[in-house]
Design a protein around this nucleic acid. Structure first.
Lengths: 109, 109
DNA sequence: TTGACACATTCCTATATCGGCATGTAAGGT
DNA sequence: ACCTTACATGCCGATATAGGAATGTGTCAA
């Protein structure tokens, strides 16, 4: 899963699919890759479940399966506090609480 | 960057470093990897800037450099609307607005 | 049914990566 | 000076992966 999106071309393909489903040839034109290349990358993305396919005539329309990316989001979210200003504000509150507690007369033990 | 955290062991090392900085041998004990293995993974993490080092005596204390993970967070955040309930709620609001607008007597053009 | 079109798969080669092992290097301790 | 500790690096073989060229498969059109 992480590995699938570690490939720059595959991330670009996903970004292109964000506008909606597309046939393979669209992705070939938009990326400048060869057709086999695109098919191979799509296969990898399919195998980890991050894209789905739908057959329409002789075309195969690919679309994103969003929830498959949730594990990545959840993982990196655990680190968000290390740079997010939102959490900086939370830190201030926690600092205040801590100081308040220390000043309340001594150890709570 | 994406590639660096695509490795399961490297994600585990990062998770271990979330508690604070640690010398290499700690990581060796906690992961069960060999020492060269850990050093190599730390090297990769260092090269993409996701960890920093500090020399203390003959130890090298590694710590996380959080902001280096922001690109991953930002990338996946663009897809969050595809599964997040928060955005589902937003969709409902937008649907309501749309229906309301359609029912207001016709084309606003 | 023959040919063109859209796409998938296979075969091949080059490069990257991981793991294991051995060795190098720098900082204490005696 | 010598040994140990803590870590990094180099070398090796095995496996994975990306790219290119050719070929296979299913669908439409005439």
């Amino acid at each position: 899963m992480f590995n699938a999106v570690a490939e720059p071309w595959r991330r670009q393909i996903l970004d292109l699919l964000r506008d909606g489903e597309r046939p393979v040839n669209d992705l070939v034109d938009l990326t400048g890759l060869t057709q086999p290349q695109v098919s191979k990358h799509l296969r990898v993305l399919r195998e980890v479940g991050v894209v789905d396919v739908r057959d329409v005539g002789r075309q195969r329309l690919y679309r994103i399966n969003g929830p498959a990316l949730k594990p990545i989001h959840d993982w990196v979210a655990d680190y968000e506090r290390m740079w997010s200003e939102r959490f900086d504000a939370l830190d201030v509150v926690l600092e205040d609480l801590k100081r308040e507690h220390e000043g309340d007369g001594g150890n709570g033990r």
